[in-house]
Design a protein around this nucleic acid. Structure first.
Lengths: 337, 337
DNA sequence: ATTGTTGATGTAACCGATTTCATTTATAAA
DNA sequence: TTTATAAATGAAATCGGTTACATCAACAAT
């Protein structure tokens, strides 16, 4: 590997001139510039960016903490991040945390140790909390998708409450009174907001809230299946199931069918996210579309703006949702209404 | 941010001693070590790993080129990579290439420019080819999943030919004679191998090969849907469709149903990969299970072994497949046999 | 002709660790 | 006690760039 010194020698100039010829060509005369470029080409010189980053103290790396890379929605978010980061000359250091706080902190340490400039967290947990407490500093971070309640960093989120309310209203309008919700982990702010939206709609429609219709899942196909099965075993089962993501909805549909019920004839099912499989479910899934890639790109943009000092107050960006009506929801069966 | 010099001053020793106290504690007396550790704690010292990496010339970063992060199978592969890399103290720099060679080369450049030590490519394209040609050197790379034919680097692959042959045999045993194949891009070695395996099985069974039953897709749900629809429009349509991945199979099932046919009553459908959605398709999908996470972890392990000089000849690791028989394949309809 | 200004280039410090080599101190052997 | 050896420590070089500052030449203004 040739270094800048080799180039300087080959070109018969100083290293400073080589550096300038490459970084700020206007400061160097045409003649010298040509000599330098010739030498660069001859030697196949590639600057050692590790040295540059070290010197500058900027890595242009961003750590991304993803609860589950294998989740289709997050995969789309990552895709959006990657695109935005690449466009701005940044790279992503990916971590599949599996929601393990120790793993998250281990990766967060890359920011303390100057291996990355900032961090994006897609979950309601601040891996910097301990260190920030101790040092009184605030580390560059952006929180997206599932955001912490009281966090002083830029966030990107959906109005989950409004979205859940909209979907519940859709089901109510179809005549459903017993609407189950297959939700996420009870502690999650995401779940809390969506349940709140669900209750908003019920309250507005004067439908009584029934705790037993709330079933906690874990966002997997399996848990949707299990939830639906158990909900159907209730003495007074629901006629509609609103799931907090599409995977659980697809799992629920299978569970419902296996119990011998029709979707949406007997039971309506709604999802959340609008992953690509939603449109290919049988029946195609009514769901809330989220701009997943935009979540990613916005998060990256905010973080870079923050890092480069272009961000004043920590903004909260709220992205739009869209209720996609497909065939998995229909009128409540007559016998039940 | 405090540096090693601050610690040295605080502890009243030289920087060399601090470095040793942290890296090779046995070389430092207990008394000094304690002084140093106290100073470290007091100052909240974190070594600047950028400096370490620069100095050592090793970044412990690995570039990963993924055709589509949003593809469920690749997401699992990445997940396996991430785990293995983390266990060995490496980080992943993720690139969603969208099979764009320019993008791939742009990321490959991170290896030339000392931002990463090596690269993992999940596609049949060598982004180092140009540079290696020019310089005569060979850059550290591992090729996995879809591997290049004549490449002198470690590879991890499935015996795609045998797997496709096994699935085709399964369909032949069910009495199918007209078996379509919804394949990938014609140029891909993956496709080529699988088509070869498909023909192996046909030949062995004495069933004539029909070019018109080969339909090229692009691994998306949509393309599976389109392929199935068009195949059913053939004058002499197939009774079974073997798809090169589960997404296309799920798309195909929808297309078939929309045409008014039953799966597997009229048409059997088989997939490849065994993604989580396969078991939740309706009907659940017969498919070839691939150890996706193991692809990732093996690729990472090989690359690290290569980087750390523990690899002699470039190995070809062949991972096992498993034919998962579910409900989407069944006996060929009587009328057609 | 003198001074000032601009443009082009070079010298050397610098970033923060590690590591070689030299030096000092402690310990064991004679 | 002296000497040989081992252990502990420090000074300084090093990695490969960037950049502040110094220098020098060319040219313009006076």
């Amino acid at each position: 590997m040739s270094t800048i010194r080799d180039v300087a020698q080959q070109a018969g100039v100083s290293v400073a001139t080589v550096s300038r010829a490459l970084q700020q060509p206007d400061l160097v005369s045409l003649k010298t510039r040509t000599k330098v470029l010739t030498a660069v080409k001859l030697l196949g010189y590639k600057p050692n960016l590790m040295a540059v980053k070290f010197r500058s103290g900027k890595t242009r790396n961003l750590v991304v903490l993803v609860p589950t890379v294998a989740n289709v929605f997050f995969a789309r978010v990552i895709s959006g991040m990657q695109q935005a980061a690449h466009d701005k000359g940044y790279s992503l250091l990916l971590c599949n945390t599996l929601a393990d706080e120790e793993m998250e902190q281990s990766y967060a340490r890359m920011v303390h140790t100057s291996q990355a400039d900032g961090l994006i967290q897609l979950r309601a947990y601040n891996p910097f909390a301990q260190l920030e407490m101790k040092t009184g500093t605030v580390l560059p971070m952006v929180n997206a998708c599932e955001v912490l309640d009281r966090i002083a960093c830029p966030t990107v989120l959906l109005d989950n409450r409004a979205a859940a309310c909209a979907m519940t209203e859709h089901l109510l309008q179809l005549g459903h009174k017993r609407i189950a919700m297959i939700k996420g982990p009870p502690r999650s702010p995401l779940t809390r907001d969506r349940v709140a939206g669900y209750r908003d709609a019920l309250d507005a429609a004067g439908v009584a809230f029934d705790e037993s219709l709330l079933y906690p899942g874990d966002f997997t196909l399996q848990s949707g299946h299990k939830a639906a099965t158990e909900l159907l075993n209730l003495p007074n089962p629901p006629t509609a199931m609103f799931c907090e993501n599409d995977e659980m909805a697809i799992g629920a549909i299978q569970g419902i069918k296996q119990k011998g019920f029709a979707v949406p004839g007997d039971i309506s099912v709604a999802g959340f996210d609008d992953i690509s499989f939603a449109a290919f479910a049988d029946p195609p899934l009514t769901t809330i579309a989220q701009p997943a890639e935009e979540f990613g790109s916005t998060a990256v943009t905010l973080l870079i703006d923050l890092l480069e000092g272009r961000l004043g107050k920590a903004p909260k960006v709220i992205l739009p949702f869209d209720l996609i009506q497909r065939a998995s929801t229909g009128p409540a069966p007559a016998g039940f209404s």
